[in-house]
Amino acid sequence: MSDTTHPVTWLRHAGQHLGLVPSLGGSVAAWQIDDPQQPGGRIDLWRPWDGATPDLYQMASFAMVPWSNRISGGGFTHVGRFHPMRPNRAGEPYPIHGDGWLQPWTLAQTAPDTLEMRLRSERFQGNPYDYESVQTFRLVQGGLDQHVLVRHRGAEPLPYGIGVHPWFPRTPATRISAPVEGVWLCGDDPLPTAHTTQFPEGWNLNAGISAHGDLIDNGYTGWGGAARIEWPERGLVLTARMPEFAQDGGTAKHFCLIYRPPQGPAFCFEPITQPIDAFHLPGQPGLRVLAQGEAMALHVQWRFGPSA
């Protein structure tokens, strides 16, 4: 991972290796831990970038600001004003995942165990958002603290959302579980069409689901702010926890998304602050309206260890 167009900056601490690519959407190239069974070897906790392709969907992870997932209808209306938005990824009919992932960030090391990336975005590609964002990655014993903050800089208040988009390698027995209350069903174009608390077969995260199977590209509601990914073949488990879960609104304000493609080496579990196309759902669930100078943040504590 030494591509000169998009160089990787590595943070090494507590038996972990975190590679960041600020010039390629402020993304993550890899998060790895030392392999105790193989001196000098590493285990990927997030699927690693190949070091060459500029496709952000091939990165280990990236932040989604100032919204996550798709916005339909050519834009959105806020306080009686329509804000047009245009598609931002080839093959996608809707703008997706915000615009932070499409711009270069600046990087700084603020502590021996910490890297920080910053972005100042002003109406990128003609969209209405004027904001600044800060991603902070801190390696701690047994894991990673990931923090994403966005601050509105425009004069007109606007609705915001945040998400993180890590890709996890999947072994044959990989499973993912999380406390959730419901799921948004969708048509062929992943936009939500109906909400249900009756989970389709193989979709109930409360009981745990396989990382393999038919396509899931859906947002879950009432997420309890925790998740567990287990690789039995590795004897390894990775957990996610939202440390500000209660003070940030609990299940009513927390959502997650599963992207489980039928083929390929990886799947996604995405902590998000609003469901797919929240801009066009009743009540705009999860979106936070920020006035000039106001901020919101998403904080995830990732921890790894041996599985039971």
Rank of each mutant, 00 (worst) to 15 (best):
P262M: 04
Q198I: 00
G142D: 12
V134F: 05
Y129N: 05
P179I: 07
A63C: 10
G19H: 07
L24F: 09
L45E: 08
E233F: 03
F199T: 00
C268V: 13
W105P: 10
Q263P: 01
M242L: 15
Y94T: 01
W184E: 10
Q135C: 08
H165V: 03
G286F: 14
G264L: 04
P7C: 06
E244N: 14
Q263Y: 06
R175T: 15
H299P: 01
A295Y: 07
M1D: 11
M1W: 09
G41H: 07
D189H: 03
R170Y: 03
W302L: 12
E294M: 03
W203E: 12
Q37F: 05
A30E: 12
R118W: 02
V183P: 01
R170C: 07
F269A: 05
P36A: 00
Y259P: 08
G74M: 06
V183H: 04
P282W: 09
S307L: 15
F304L: 02
I176N: 04
P190A: 12
P166Y: 11
G154D: 03
P192E: 00
T174D: 03
G222D: 01
L119T: 10
N88L: 05
R70L: 05
Q58K: 14
L24V: 06
S210G: 06
M59H: 12
Y160Q: 09
S2A: 15
E181K: 13
P261D: 05
I229S: 07
R42H: 15
V289R: 07
A108R: 13
W167S: 12
I71K: 04
G202C: 00
H280G: 11
G182I: 00
F62A: 02
G25M: 00
A90V: 14
A63R: 02
L20V: 14
H212V: 08
D130H: 15
H6F: 15
M85G: 01
M117D: 10
V300P: 08
L298M: 07
